[in-house]
Amino acid sequence: MYLALKVSDLDNVATVFAEGIQAGAEIEVRDKKGESVVIRALDPIPYGHKVAVREIETGEQIMKYGEEIGVASRAIAAGNHVHVHNLDSMRGRGDL
């Protein structure tokens, strides 16, 4: 089983700390309280990237470390890889 960490209760993504996660793999998502839940990867997820820990609707804020890091550019299912293909960054844009 692979490991991902969720730092804040506000987070809807967790950071993966494992190499070689393929679609179908089980990921244990641990939080800061030591509690964990197991989700199934729907996509390959590289080390250090994000995995959705719950359903995220189009336009919903993506929360990591308790901070908004962007918005979902399309619907994201729990277990999906979250990256530039489904997240619009809000940092440093200057146009919003």
Score class of each variant (00 low, 15 high):
25 A>Y: 13
25 A>R: 01
25 A>G: 04
26 E>T: 12
27 I>Q: 03
27 I>M: 11
27 I>D: 07
28 E>W: 06
28 E>I: 14
29 V>S: 03
29 V>K: 01
29 V>G: 04
29 V>R: 02
30 R>V: 14
30 R>N: 00
30 R>S: 10
30 R>L: 15
30 R>T: 06
31 D>E: 03
31 D>R: 10
31 D>S: 09
31 D>Y: 13
32 K>W: 11
32 K>M: 11
33 K>S: 06
33 K>G: 05
33 K>N: 12
33 K>I: 00
34 G>E: 08
34 G>C: 07
34 G>V: 11
35 E>P: 03
35 E>C: 06
35 E>D: 04
36 S>R: 10
37 V>I: 15
37 V>N: 10
37 V>H: 08
38 V>C: 02
38 V>W: 00
38 V>T: 14
38 V>I: 15
38 V>Y: 00
38 V>L: 05
39 I>N: 07
39 I>R: 02
39 I>E: 07
39 I>H: 10
39 I>V: 15
39 I>L: 14
40 R>D: 01
41 A>R: 08
42 L>Q: 09
42 L>V: 02
43 D>Q: 05
43 D>W: 02
43 D>I: 03
43 D>E: 15
44 P>G: 09
45 I>M: 12
45 I>S: 06
46 P>M: 12
46 P>C: 08
46 P>D: 09
46 P>V: 06
46 P>N: 04
47 Y>P: 00
47 Y>W: 15
47 Y>S: 04
48 G>P: 13
49 H>I: 01
50 K>L: 12
50 K>Y: 07
50 K>A: 11
51 V>H: 03
51 V>K: 01
52 A>T: 15
53 V>E: 04
53 V>M: 09
53 V>D: 01
53 V>C: 11
53 V>H: 02
54 R>Y: 10
54 R>N: 14
54 R>C: 15
54 R>F: 06
55 E>W: 05
55 E>G: 13
56 I>E: 03
56 I>R: 05
57 E>Q: 12
57 E>H: 09
58 T>P: 10
58 T>R: 13
59 G>M: 08
59 G>P: 08
60 E>N: 06
60 E>W: 08
60 E>F: 06
60 E>C: 05
61 Q>M: 11
61 Q>L: 12
62 I>C: 03
63 M>D: 03
63 M>I: 15
63 M>G: 00
64 K>L: 03
64 K>W: 05
64 K>A: 04
65 Y>Q: 02
65 Y>P: 00
65 Y>I: 01
67 E>C: 15
67 E>G: 05
67 E>D: 14
67 E>F: 07
69 I>M: 03
69 I>C: 02
69 I>F: 02
69 I>W: 04
69 I>H: 04
70 G>H: 05
71 V>L: 04
71 V>Q: 00
72 A>W: 12
72 A>E: 10
72 A>P: 00
73 S>H: 09
73 S>A: 13
73 S>R: 09
74 R>W: 10
74 R>I: 11
74 R>S: 14
74 R>F: 05
74 R>L: 13
74 R>T: 15
75 A>S: 12
75 A>V: 12
75 A>Y: 13
75 A>M: 09
75 A>K: 14
